[in-house]
Amino acid sequence: MATVSLKGITKSFGKTEVIHGIDVDIRDGEFIVIVGPSGCGKSTLLRMVAGLETVTSGEVQIGGARVNDREPMDRDIAMVFQNYALYPHMSVYDNMAYGLKIAGTPKAEIAERVAEAATLLQLEDYLKRRPRELSGGQRQRVAMGRAIVRKPSVFLFDEPLSNLDAKLRVQMRLEIKQLQRRLGVTSLYVTHDQVEAMTLADRMIVMNAGRADQIGAPLEVYANPQTEFVAGFIGSPPMNFLPADMAHDAPPGAVKLGIRPEHLTLAQTGTAAKVIYTEALGAETLLHVDLANGTRATVRQDAIAPHPKEGETVHLAWDAGNRIFFDSEGQRC
């Protein structure tokens, strides 16, 4: 177990800089999720921590020691790959034992540690099989088992759930979280799925075009997004962005007013809007409405509340305390 520090990390491919300076200190045992849309540099950042990409400038520290020039194997990390990267010609047991075998661990100890990990991951019955004979979820577990048996200081996960179907993803998400709590190993987890980020993270790093737009606890990021990008990316359905002049008390420089769908309510008076369509999801109902100025907004309502029909005109109200203003640069103001 160890702390991980990134100090002014940048990465260039040729002349193109793709990561423009990331600073973060990760505490021992913390679960950090790096989240962002594809191409934002999140995987590249993880691969620099893993030692699979060189660091252009800045410093990666693991357990307080600079590791920029260390080989992956000397960094005391274990990575779980998106496609699991299991060896097709080896059995599940050999896959899990491979790292220990390379390290020259005695056979008896390898057997013990693999058995321990297999019990933890409910893989005891599959140790003799080949990866291709397993289901997606089982392969995922083997990939994690291969990381666990090495007892590393840091786990690195590169979109480990993206190849699973939706139901299994929810289940494995819980398993990963429980496992990490139990083992207490510092973890960095990359995903493009903001629900995964919200549910797994102790703290999350929201990345946008090679920058860390915001670093913080999930609910803190949700409640207080620092940029328009974060506000729109975290939360589903996304935050509504209305013209700032709809509020007479907008701060100077503000061009957009952000408000979450659950903070918009239907009222007798207020801003008029026309219901375009409704989505009844069971527990809640989403109303998609058009304001008089043409802006599309979403209202989240409890399913039990009587909701208007499509084509009807409604009136929207909101609490001034839930508004967030952004300037023309997309920064909070």
Binding site: A50, L52, P72, M73, A78, M79, F81, A85, I102, A103
Partner: peptide, 18 residues
């Protein structure tokens, strides 16, 4: 051969020859 299989090898501590 998926590149990640080679990368996983380095991650698991294998030498280039291994």
């Amino acid at each position: 051969l998926d590149d990640s299989l080679i990368e996983a090898g380095y991650d698991l501590g294998a030498s280039g020859f291994a």
